[in-house]
Write a protein that binds this DNA or RNA. Sequence first.
DNA 1: GCAAAAGTGTTGTCCTTACACCCATGC
DNA 2: GCATGGGTGTAAGGACAACACTTTTGC
Lengths: 250, 250
Amino acid sequence: MKKEPAVITAYRNENGGLIKDVNKLVASYPRVPITVDCVIFGFEENELKVLLIRSDLEFYKDKWSLLGDFADDNEELDDAAYRVLAERTGMNDVYLEQVRAFSKPNRHPGGRVITIAYCSLLNIQHHKLQSTDNELHWHSVNSIKDMAFDHKEILDVCYSWLQKRIQEHPLGFNLLPDKFSLRELQNLYEAILGVNLDRRNFRKKFFSMDFLEDIGEYEQDVPHRPGKLYRFNFEKYEKNKRKWIGIDFG
Amino acid sequence: MKKEPAVITAYRNENGGLIKDVNKLVASYPRVPITVDCVIFGFEENELKVLLIRSDLEFYKDKWSLLGDFADDNEELDDAAYRVLAERTGMNDVYLEQVRAFSKPNRHPGGRVITIAYCSLLNIQHHKLQSTDNELHWHSVNSIKDMAFDHKEILDVCYSWLQKRIQEHPLGFNLLPDKFSLRELQNLYEAILGVNLDRRNFRKKFFSMDFLEDIGEYEQDVPHRPGKLYRFNFEKYEKNKRKWIGIDFG
DNA sequence: GCAAAAGTGTTGTCCTTACACCCATGC
DNA sequence: GCATGGGTGTAAGGACAACACTTTTGC
């Protein structure tokens, strides 16, 4: 039961049990190809969308795939994920967060590849996809059935992650224009959480959190009374956010 | 801005733009040594403890290190983490969850190594460390100053993860004996969260969640009125847990 | 009988929910 | 003037925080 890991044992007892040649030690480790895969969410027409590309592999012909790439030598994983985003969308100032690693040995048909999934939120309006990117498309998250690799599983995990995360952190604003109406914000939450929320209580909630900034502008070209536009005041949020004790399993 | 990843470009245009030889594709990816590192928490003498080993590396002589090992060929990362636990503690039925990847290029002195951190909770009483494991020790989490590699950073991240997680999921029971008093449970929460909680409200809270099972036994050998012992009813919890909408940033 | 911790209830406050009416604009 | 959604307030119920006294045991 208490076997020592093989490599460590092999390198022991050279210097009072300590390993001297760390390079040799690391060189003895098995090596694995590492990729990052980005689940890039956007919001359009009151639907949560995800940016997918048609798989490059004949093996997955006509299946959709997340945007990913291998991690370069000495490239930190976050950097690799930002690089994928920049290469594919041209955007540099995008919200991005690591979700977790996926490591099933047979998840890639070409051999073992471990991938680190990242979740990313961007404003579709800020990035009009160019027509040369004709294999790059936004898909309604709820319409996606099956995908290349284990990417459907990764998408599902990231979607759940987002549903939880958006209730505890002000991520949603990354999916909206700088100026947005409360109706847009509510549509966003309803679409992501898959619920209907009471409009009056929703407003009260966000106003009481007190980081929506009334910028004195109004919606335009709407066939009804235009709503006020707001901006998310990030500084105010950072200054006022509190730590929180509240045990509650669910 | 929209450069295509080099490898994908190289393998294109062989079959209508599709890549045929997936093995060759994967073989062309850079490979990285992957390790798992386990942050193994325990609870003893009303303190949160973490299980550490003295570093095997001369480079980190006399520094403490998390328990880790490289991932074997075709070994899933969760399995590698369970293996590390079994090898080091002899325990197989331990709570374990992936936290995240750490990938700074210089985090290991022997060259680039990416590690996936796991958080693990076990009951110290169930596993009396054997004296042959004389470099394996429990350390009070709050007393740890500096560690080998980036392990202090990993520990800090996992500790924060635990503080949050324990408020939303019934993990804490993994740190306690099967039968425990409410006082022990409260001490656990107070130690992990670093706060004082009102005893009466704490009891009400847990009783109202209704998965503590009164087993009709009492504490023994205490120099005061003995408290009742309870057991966590996992089935009842699973059956009653609800989904939850509650937007609240903090 | 004394020390030490277990066990128990009530009240006020705050947060959440449910719900209905007037208002501003485009057509 | 009518259709459409914007904007607002209130009341009830539930959760949480604060708080003190009696009970049981070991010594």
